[in-house]
Amino acid sequence: MPDIVIHTNKLTKRFGNFIAADEITFEVEKGEIFGFLGANGAGKTTAMRMLCGLSAPSSGEATVAGFDVYKQTEQIKMNIGYMSQKFSLYEDLTVLENIYFFGGIYGLNKKDLKSKSEVLLNQLGMHHEAKKLVKTLPLGWKQKLAFSVAILHQPKIVFLDEPTGGVDPVTRRQFWDLIYEAAESGITIFVTTHYMDEAEYCNRISIMVDGKIKALDTPANLKKKYGATNMDEVFFELARGAKRAE
């Protein structure tokens, strides 16, 4: 029996009459790379925000890293990393200052901060940029940095909301190398994306349509099930019926 790190049961979020996430039920295992797919407006970000403790669910239940999303949001926050759609490091701080700040508020001590930032800068090849303001970096570098900062405190799970939007193919490849490395070190990856090649990199994927989860399996099984040769076709097959326009 593998460890379950995310468990949801009929998790729902309503905004007035609008049901952004409609009774979603799924489980994510430890160390998995879990792809969370769906068209714009399908409810991916809403679901993710509920799991991160940023948004209170309307009904249903869910646990993240063993903690309840209603009552134990602060414990959840100790155990997760999060990278939102908007770039969210401080642009007017340097690379190193961002690393120290976010590491510091997760409670890393001076010694850890020093060694971890060293490792991180090596990994990203950003030694020369350590003292540059983040706003001067190209987008791809910023995203890689944001990811590394999000897992600096070795969370159990990291949530990535369209981390590679607008990033060039080479940098995207490098980004996924970072994701694999993190997964190998035991961090569970929960990632949303619109790139179907990236979906293929995931262990399992779910596809959301109009707030509901329509499919959940490994990429290979999904392709078999829908008689498709690639993930693009699977996605089209499922998302074509979507009623919600952007």
């Binding site: 999060y82 908007k86 770039f87 642009e91 508020i105």
Partner: peptide
Amino acid sequence: EIGTIEQINVTPI
């Protein structure tokens, strides 16, 4: 506005 508060809100601060 710039979204950094969300990054703060997702920390145990």
